[in-house]
Amino acid sequence: MTQYGFFYDATRCTGCKTCELACKDYKDLPVDFSFRHVYEVEGGSWQQDDAGFWTTDSYTYYLSMSCNHCDEPACTHACPTGAMHKDTDTGIVSVDKAKCIGCGYCAMACPYDAPTVSKEIGHSAKCNGCAERVAAGMQPICVEACSGRALFFAPIDELPSGEGRADIAPLPAEDFTGPNLYLKKCVSMQPVATDVAISNILEVM
C-alpha cells in the first residue's frame, strides 16, 4: 500500500492561515467548522538575575495541521460501523457518510482533533486529503494555496527530507497512532510533553 502523508516545513510557515481558509472555501465549510487548523504555540518565561538583568527563553511557533491519516488511526479503531476507514491504496482516512451514525466516538478518540460530528451535518466530517484532486494529479487545496510553500502532500517516501514524524508539543507522542505528518522543525519547536500554551484557542476549537 502507498501511504500518503503531509510534510510541514515550520521554517517557512508564517502563520497566515491561507491553508485553513482555502480548505474552508473549497470544502464549503461553515464559519465554525474547519478541517485544517493553524495552531499558534507559545511558551517560555522571563528571569531576572542577581544583577537585575532580564533574560527570556520565550518562543512561539506555528503548526498547520489537519487529519494526519495515521498508520493506526484511533478514529477507525473506535468507529462502530466502519464508516471511518483507511483506504487500502492510499492510506488516506476518510468517512463513508452512508455508514456513519454520527456517534462522535471518532472525534473523542482522535488526539489531533481531526473529525467533527454534529447533528447539523448529520455525520462525521474531516480532511480526506482532497482525494479527488490527488486522484486527478493535483495537490490538496491547502498545499496549493500555501504561499510560503510550507506544506506538501505525497506518498511518504517522496516527501522532502526533514526530521521525521511529528513529535512536537502540543501533539501526543507519535507511537499513539503513527501520524503521517512529517516535519522540518523550526528552532522554536519544543519536544512532546513540553508544557506549551496555544494562544488562539478560540480560533481553533
Binding site: 462502530p80 460501523t81 455508514k99 451514525i101 454520527g102 456517534c103 466516538y105 460530528v117 448529520g122
Partner: peptide
C-alpha cells in the same frame, strides 16, 4: 438521541471485535 444519523444504526455491529462500542452494543 445521541446519534447525528440514527437511520444508519443497523451498521453498529460492523466493528465487532475492533470497536469497543460495537462490542458493547
Amino acid at each position: 438521541f445521541h446519534l447525528a444519523n440514527p437511520m444508519a444504526a443497523f451498521g453498529v455491529f460492523g466493528g465487532l471485535g475492533r470497536s469497543p462500542m460495537s462490542n458493547e452494543l
